[in-house]
Design a protein around this nucleic acid. Structure first.
Lengths: 179, 179
DNA sequence: CCACATGGTCAACCATGTTGTCGATTCTAC
DNA sequence: GTAGAATCGACAACATGGTTGACCATGTGG
C-alpha cells in the first residue's frame, strides 16, 4: 500500500546535525538540495500524471530517459548503456522493458551482424513529443506564478552553477542508489 | 566498469519530440527539470565526495535520507517507513543497512515489547552534522559564484512553486523508479 | 590469416522495492 | 476482565534494475 508519506514530523528534517550558523548561510544550506529536488520531482510527477491520462499510464521517469538515449536514429544496447552511464547488460534489460511496453523495437543491423538496432516505435515518438509539450506547459505555469523573468533567472543561475556535462546526463535513475 | 557517461551526443537530449515553439517558452521547457536535477545532483555528488574523504566513504544518498527519518529521538521501522513513504519491510531492510554500516543501532523498547527503537550512533550523528556543514559550504560557494541574492531568489522562487509538503518529503530514493 | 576489439546474451549476485502472512503484543470497547 | 482489533517486527516470494564475469559471433587492422 504505502499510502502517502506521513506528514507528521516531516519538518524535523536536518534539525539534527544542524551546523552552527556561519557568517554565510545561517546554517540553512540543506534546504537548497531539497528545494531543487522538490522542483524536479514536482515537474516529473505532474508530467507523468498528465501522460497517464493521455494514454501512457505505464511510462515511468526512467523510461523517458531511456527513450532519449535511444534517440531519433536508433541505437544499439551498448550505445544506450554508454549514454545512460550504465553497463550494456543493464541497458539491455531496460530496452527489454521498453519493448514490452511497446515504446521501442529491436531489429538486426544489416550492415553489422553483431549489432541489433533499437529504435522507437510511433508510440515512443508520440510519448516523447507529448512529454516535450507538457514540459513547455509546466514551464509556462511556473512563469505565470513567478513571472517569466524569474524563471529565466532561475534557469540562468542553474546553468552557471551546474556543469554542462552534468546537466544533460541521462543517468538519472541509477544514480541515487549507486554503490 | 561503467566508467563515465559518454559525452558524445548527449546534447541530442529531447531533440526528438521537440514541441513547436509556443508563444511562451519557445519549446525549451524540458530544460527546467534537467537543470533542477542537475543542480541537485551536483550538490549531492559533491557532498558525498567530501564525506568520502572525511571517513564516510560508504555513505550513500539514500542513507542520509534514512538517517533523517530516524531522527534525533529514534524511531521504529514502521515510523521510518511512513516518513520515507515506503513499506515497513523496506524500511526494515534499510535500517539493516544502516546497522551494518555502523550508523544506527536497534534496541528493544522497554515500554512496548513489540517495538524496536532504532537510534543513531555517534557516528550517525557525526555524519549528519558533517553533511549539514558541507551543505552550508556548498551553498556559500554558489553564493560566491552567483551572488547571495540570486541564491536567495532561487530558493524563494522554488519555495513558491513546490508545495511545502513536497519539498521536505524524504522518499527521494524510492520515487524515481516507482511502479 | 590471426589477434584483438566490439556487440549481445546468459548467469549469478546485490540492493531495494513490493505483497502477503504470521506470531506477539498492546489497545480498546464492551 | 476479556475479546477483538490494531500494530510491530519478521519471514518469504517476487519484481526491477543495477553490477561482474564469461562466452560466442562478428568485424577490423596488422
Amino acid at each position: 500500500m504505502v499510502d502517502h508519506v506521513a506528514k507528521e514530523n516531516v519538518n524535523q528534517v536536518v534539525d539534527i546535525g544542524k551546523a552552527e550558523s556561519g557568517p554565510e548561510g545561517g546554517g540553512r544550506g540543506y534546504e537548497l538540495p531539497l528545494l531543487l529536488f522538490g522542483g524536479f520531482r514536482t515537474l516529473i510527477d505532474r508530467l507523468h500524471a498528465r501522460l497517464a491520462t493521455e494514454g501512457h499510464p505505464d511510462l515511468r521517469p526512467a523510461h523517458g530517459f531511456a527513450m532519449q538515449a535511444v534517440g531519433a536514429r536508433g541505437a544499439t544496447a551498448s550505445e544506450i548503456g554508454r549514454r545512460l552511464g550504465v553497463s550494456k547488460q543493464a541497458a539491455g534489460k531496460t530496452v527489454d522493458r521498453l519493448l514490452a511496453l511497446g515504446y521501442a523495437e529491436r531489429a538486426d543491423d544489416p550492415a553489422d551482424a553483431r549489432r541489433k538496432l533499437v529504435h522507437l516505435t510511433p508510440r515512443g515518438y508520440e510519448a516523447l513529443a507529448r512529454s516535450a509539450a507538457i514540459f513547455d506547459e509546466l514551464r509556462a505555469e511556473w512563469a505565470a506564478t513567478l513571472g517569466a523573468d524569474r524563471v529565466r533567472d532561475l534557469e540562468a543561475a542553474l546553468r552557471n552553477v551546474v556543469p554542462a556535462e552534468t546537466a544533460f546526463r541521462l543517468d538519472a535513475t541509477s544514480w541515487l542508489g549507486a554503490p
